[in-house]
C-alpha cells in the first residue's frame, strides 16, 4: 500500500493567474488604442446635434454625448492620449528615480544625504496639486501633463533603488568585482543596475494604475489634452453634468479608466509574484 500526501491540484487554474489576466487586458487596451481608426464606427469628433444624448442602442453601442458624438468611438480614441501620457511619465521617472537612488546608495555620505533629502521633499508634495500648478504654469497639453506628473512620481523609484543598492553595496560579489578592478560606472551599470531593475519594473507597472488615475484627474479638471480631442478624464467631466438623466455619458469613460487602471495593477502584481524571489512558492 502506498500512502501519499500530495497537494490538491489546481493545475487547470494555472493559466488564469494575475500576470496573464493583467497581460491580456493590457494587450487588449493597447490593441484597441492602436486600431481605433479601424474599430470605431464613427468619427469621434463629428458633432450631430439631432442625435445628442442618445441611450445605447444597436447603432451607437455606448450611446452619444451632449454634442451627439458616438461614445464608443470616443472611448476607443480616448485610450490613445492616456497610454501616451502614461508611457511618457514612465520613460521620464524610471531612469531619473533609478539614477538618483543608485547614486545615493552607492556613494553614501553627503551625496546620499543631499539626494535623499531632495527625494523626501518631493515625496512630501501632494502630487496632483503640484501637477495642476505646473500645468497651469506650463499650459495644458499632453507633454506638459506628462512632465507635471513625472515631476512628482520619481521619488518612490529613487527610494526603492537606494534601499536595494544599500542592501547589495557590501555584498561579496560587488567586493569581488572591485578586487578585480571593476569600478565606477562600469560597476554601477553592469553590476548594480541589473539587480535593481526587476523590482523597478514591477513598481512601474504597479504605479501605472495610479498614473492613469492622475492623468484622468488632470483631464477631468481641464488640464490635460484639450477638447475636442477625446480623453477619458474630460469625457467624465462633460458627462457629469447630465449624470442623473444620461448616466452612460460619464459611466462609459469611467469604466474605461477603471479597467485600464485595473489592467496595469494586475500586471504589476503578477510581475511581482514572478520576479520577486520572496514570493517564491
Amino acid at each position: 500500500m502506498i500512502i501519499s500526501k500530495k497537494g490538491v491540484s489546481f493545475r487547470w487554474l494555472r493559466p488564469f493567474n494575475t500576470l496573464n489576466i493583467g497581460l491580456i487586458l493590457v494587450v487588449i487596451l493597447v490593441g484597441l488604442a492602436l486600431l481605433a481608426p479601424l474599430l470605431s464606427p464613427f468619427d469621434p469628433n463629428i458633432q450631430n446635434i439631432q442625435e445628442r444624448l442618445l441611450a445605447p442602442d444597436s447603432q451607437h453601442w455606448f450611446g452619444t454625448d451632449r454634442f451627439g458624438r458616438d461614445l464608443f468611438s470616443r472611448v476607443l480614441y480616448g485610450a490613445r492620449p492616456t497610454l501616451i501620457l502614461v508611457s511618457l511619465v514612465i520613460l521620464l521617472t524610471v531612469p531619473i528615480g533609478l539614477a538618483i537612488g543608485i547614486f545615493a546608495g552607492y556613494f553614501g555620505g553627503w551625496v546620499e544625504r543631499i539626494l535623499m533629502r531632495l527625494t523626501d521633499i518631493v515625496m512630501s508634495l501632494p502630487s496632483l496639486v503640484i501637477a495642476l500648478a505646473l500645468v497651469s504654469i506650463l499650459g495644458p497639453g499632453l507633454m506638459n501633463g506628462a512632465l507635471a506628473l513625472a515631476f512628482t512620481s520619481w521619488p518612490s523609484f529613487a527610494r526603492q533603488a537606494r534601499t536595494e543598492t544599500l542592501a547589495i553595496r557590501n555584498s561579496d560579489y560587488l567586493s569581488a568585482a572591485k578586487m578585480q578592478g571593476i569600478t565606477g560606472f562600469r560597476l554601477i551599470f553592469g553590476h548594480i543596475l541589473p539587480l535593481i531593475l526587476p523590482s523597478a519594473i514591477v513598481r512601474a507597472a504597479l504605479n501605472l494604475g495610479g498614473i492613469i488615475l492622475a492623468a484622468a484627474g488632470l483631464g477631468f479638471l481641464g488640464m490635460g489634452i484639450q477638447p475636442p480631442a477625446a480623453e477619458w478624464g474630460s469625457m467624465v467631466a462633460s458627462g457629469s453634468r447630465v449624470i442623473f438623466d444620461q448616466w452612460w455619458v460619464a459611466a462609459v469613460p469611467g469604466v474605461a479608466i477603471l479597467l485600464a487602471s485595473l489592467a496595469f495593477n494586475l500586471l504589476g502584481d503578477g510581475l511581482r509574484d514572478k520576479m520577486d524571489p520572496r514570493h517564491d512558492k
Binding site: 500500500m1 502506498i2 500512502i3 501519499s4 500526501k5 500530495k6 497537494g7 512558492k281
Partner: peptide, 11 residues
C-alpha cells in the same frame, strides 16, 4: 514545502 510530494509504504 507544498511543492514537494511525499510517498511511503509505511510512515
Amino acid at each position: 514545502p507544498d511543492s514537494l510530494y511525499v510517498e511511503a509504504d509505511h510512515f
